[in-house]
Every structure is written in C-alpha cells, then in structure tokens.
Amino acid sequence: MNYQTLKIVFPYTLPVLMGYIFMGIAFGVLLSSKGYAFYWGTLMGILIYAGSMQFIAIGLLTTPLNLLGAAILTFTVNARHLFYGLSLLEKFKIFGFKKFYMIFSLTDETYSLLCTLKPPAKISPADFYFSIAFLNHFYWILGCTLGGILGSLITFNSQGIDFSMTALFIVIFVEQWEKTEQHIPALAGILITALSLIFFGTKSFIIISMLCLVLTLIFFRKKLESTSEVDHAE
C-alpha cells in the first residue's frame, strides 16, 4: 500500500468518510460530555473500532461495572461479524499476515465495500481491499478525535446526539430492505425485538433479543439460503 494506491481507492470510500466523520464526532462529543479527555475517544477508535459498541460503552463506563453483562452484550451486538467473517474466508487468504488487521477492521460499511467492489486492473486485490479497510478506520479515528476536541472546547447540550447511531441503523435497514428480495431476517428481527421488549422490559431486551435472533438465523440458515437461491433463479 502506498500513496498512489490510497489516492485511487479514496473515491470509493467517500460515502463511508461522510458517515464516519459525523458519527465519530457524535461519539467523541458524548464521551467528552461524560468527563473523558479527547484522547480516550482516539484510543477507543484505534483499539475498539466498533461504532455501535462504542456508543454503548459510554453507558457501560458511567454505570456500575458488570463484566458478564458487558461481555454478553458485546458479543450479541457484534455477533453479525461471525457471518461476515465466514463469507470472507476465501477472500482473506490473499492478505498473508495482514489478514489479522482485515479481520479487526471489518465493519458493516467495510464489509459492504469488500463484497461489492472489484479492484482496478492496475492495483492488486490485496492492496485495494486493504486500503479500503485502512482508510475507513482512519476516518473513524479522525471523527472520534475531532468530536472529543470539540466537546472539550465547546460546552453545549449534547442530549439527543446519541440518536445518531439509531438513525444510521434505520438508514442501513431501509437500504438493505430495498436491495434484497429476502425480507424474512429483517421481519424476524423486528418481531423478536418487539416481543423481547414487551416480555422482558427495556433493561434486558437487547441481550435477549440479540441471542434469540442469532439462534433463529443459525437454525433457519439453510432454509433461508435455499429460499434466496430460488428467488434469484426466478
């Protein structure tokens, strides 16, 4: 990877840049509002690099520590990456030791680009995909840092900023709904989450609904895949 490669890859990552900068700023501002210096946001962006989990981590840092609950919540929120990783096993073979960074840097947006983009003829696939992952990670770190600095310099009411993550997932949900013919997983997610909220309340429904959804998708995986293949064949 070199400057010329990054220059060619950069336009492909512009949509992610726009999203990550503003989402990272929102996270940095919220973290700063809890009394943390800006560099904590930078470190979390470098070492954790998980948008939704970083927002959740703000709440975990400001409430009594529950290691088991935090571990279960982290696993369930990021369980979708198990499926991402399985679908990229073959593609990641070309990266050598760099595959460890590719695994670490695999976010929803990066996964989408890795699956849909084809490298230009003048760039090797390994350099092309690695540059995408690297640039996306850099955008997130930059956003988290800017948000932390902004939050430490300017005092204002940050209430409502945390809804930005919810808004992002709504946009992703709508986009995926429009692009796919198979809506059963999405409908299952809505139904399971609603039932979990009704029966278990606001304090416990996230962990329970995520566990139930993961188990449901695993159990019905073959049936969903066969249904999807039939739809494409038609």
Rank of each mutant, 00 (worst) to 15 (best):
residue 41 G to D: 00
residue 91 K to L: 09
residue 29 V to A: 08
residue 217 L to M: 09
residue 144 C to S: 11
residue 59 G to N: 13
residue 145 T to W: 01
residue 187 L to I: 14
residue 166 T to W: 04
residue 206 I to M: 03
residue 202 T to D: 08
residue 38 F to M: 05
residue 200 F to P: 04
residue 233 A to I: 12
residue 211 L to H: 01
residue 122 K to G: 03
residue 14 L to Y: 12
residue 211 L to F: 10
residue 232 H to R: 15
residue 32 S to Q: 07
residue 189 G to Q: 02
residue 2 N to Q: 14
residue 8 I to L: 15
residue 188 A to W: 04
residue 27 F to N: 00
residue 232 H to M: 15
residue 180 T to G: 14
residue 212 C to R: 07
residue 167 A to Q: 10
residue 98 K to E: 09
residue 183 H to E: 06
residue 230 V to F: 15
residue 184 I to F: 08
residue 162 D to E: 14
residue 42 T to G: 06
residue 110 T to F: 05
residue 89 L to K: 14
residue 233 A to F: 14
residue 99 K to F: 02
residue 65 L to W: 12
residue 181 E to F: 13
residue 38 F to N: 00
residue 222 K to I: 09
residue 125 P to M: 06
residue 220 F to R: 07
residue 112 S to D: 04
residue 119 P to W: 07
residue 76 T to A: 12
residue 215 L to E: 07
residue 199 F to T: 11
residue 122 K to Y: 08
residue 187 L to E: 11
residue 61 L to R: 07
residue 30 L to K: 11
residue 109 E to G: 02
residue 165 M to Y: 03
residue 89 L to C: 13
residue 179 K to Q: 13
residue 146 L to P: 02
residue 5 T to F: 13
residue 42 T to K: 02
residue 211 L to E: 02
residue 53 M to G: 03
residue 163 F to N: 09
residue 115 C to F: 04
residue 193 T to A: 06
residue 32 S to T: 07
residue 128 F to I: 05
residue 53 M to W: 04
residue 22 F to Q: 05
residue 218 I to F: 13
residue 66 N to S: 10
residue 171 V to E: 09
residue 136 N to C: 13
residue 12 Y to W: 15
residue 159 Q to I: 10
residue 169 F to K: 07
residue 135 L to T: 02
residue 4 Q to C: 08
residue 140 W to K: 08
residue 20 Y to I: 00
residue 26 A to N: 04
residue 195 L to E: 05
residue 177 W to D: 06
residue 129 Y to C: 05
residue 191 L to I: 13
residue 28 G to I: 00
residue 171 V to I: 04
residue 129 Y to F: 15
residue 60 L to W: 00
residue 172 I to E: 01
residue 148 G to E: 01
residue 175 E to D: 14
residue 206 I to E: 05
residue 114 L to M: 08
residue 167 A to H: 14
residue 150 L to A: 10
residue 180 T to A: 15
residue 17 L to M: 13
residue 130 F to K: 02
residue 226 S to G: 04
residue 57 A to H: 03
residue 70 A to L: 09
residue 121 A to Q: 13
residue 220 F to T: 08
residue 109 E to M: 03
residue 193 T to W: 00
residue 76 T to L: 14
residue 97 F to A: 12
residue 41 G to N: 01
residue 135 L to A: 02
residue 170 I to L: 11
residue 162 D to T: 05
residue 1 M to W: 10
residue 207 I to R: 05
residue 48 I to M: 10
residue 189 G to P: 01
residue 81 H to K: 02
residue 80 R to V: 00
residue 104 F to Y: 08
residue 40 W to S: 01
residue 179 K to A: 12
residue 123 I to F: 04
residue 172 I to W: 03
residue 159 Q to E: 13
residue 74 T to M: 07
residue 129 Y to T: 06
residue 80 R to E: 00
residue 219 F to Q: 14
residue 140 W to F: 09
residue 108 D to L: 04
residue 3 Y to K: 08
residue 7 K to Y: 12
residue 9 V to E: 06
residue 14 L to F: 13
residue 22 F to T: 10
residue 95 F to H: 09
residue 84 Y to C: 00
residue 138 F to N: 05
residue 127 D to A: 12
residue 191 L to F: 12
residue 211 L to V: 02
residue 169 F to T: 06
residue 142 L to K: 05
residue 79 A to S: 06
residue 53 M to Q: 06
residue 180 T to K: 15
residue 116 T to F: 12
residue 143 G to H: 03
